[in-house]
Computed example of a mutant assay.
Amino acid sequence: MILIAALGCSRLNWSRQVERSLAWRLIGGTFLGSLVVDVLKLLIPRVRPRVAQLENAGAVLDTFGRQLLEAGDHSRSALMSFPSGHAAVADQQQ
């Protein structure tokens, strides 16, 4: 929404094909990046640091899967740490 608002407030000349194409690529890239991240989060379970028992981890790869989850927390969001959605969308804007 912020990207769409910024494009709307910019001095973008929508009648020029080149500028209109650039705007649609930015919008599409942002949404496609978010969609890819959400799909990867569903496919690759990685424990969030706030709910993990990190003292039981021997290596970084131990954070993938459910073995480090705290006893009471088995929510889906506790396993959606990878990849970072904020970093993926921010990278699209460069």
Rank of each mutant, 00 (worst) to 15 (best):
A87N: 02
V47F: 01
P45M: 01
V89A: 08
L3Q: 02
L32V: 13
S15L: 07
R50S: 15
L12E: 00
G85N: 04
L12N: 01
S15M: 08
Q17G: 01
L69S: 07
C9D: 10
T30L: 14
V37S: 04
D73C: 12
L54V: 06
P83G: 00
L43T: 07
C9N: 13
S75V: 06
L35T: 11
A57E: 05
L22Y: 12
R48G: 01
Q67S: 15
A23F: 10
E19R: 02
V18M: 03
V36Q: 00
Q94A: 13
K41P: 05
A78V: 11
H74C: 07
L43S: 10
F64I: 08
H86V: 03
V18R: 08
L26M: 15
D38F: 02
G65R: 09
R50C: 11
E70K: 15
M80W: 03
G65K: 11
L12V: 08
L79D: 00
G28F: 07
D62G: 03
G28C: 04
V51P: 03
G58R: 14
L61I: 12
F64V: 04
Q67C: 13
L79K: 01
I44H: 00
S21W: 06
R11F: 05
R76W: 13
D91P: 08
A90Y: 09
M1L: 12
W24F: 13
L40M: 12
V51G: 02
G85M: 02
L22V: 13
V47Q: 00
G85H: 02
G65N: 10
L79I: 08
Q53I: 14
R66Y: 14
A71W: 11
H74V: 05
Q53M: 15
W14V: 07
I4S: 08
E19K: 02
Q93N: 11
L54K: 11
L40P: 04
R50F: 09
N56H: 15
L68H: 12
V39S: 05
S81V: 02
M1K: 10
S81K: 01
V60A: 08
R11P: 04
S34R: 10
W24R: 13
N13C: 09
Q94I: 14
M80R: 07
V89N: 00
R25F: 05
A23R: 07
S15V: 04
V51F: 13
L26N: 05
N13T: 11
D91H: 15
R46L: 05
A59K: 13
I2F: 06
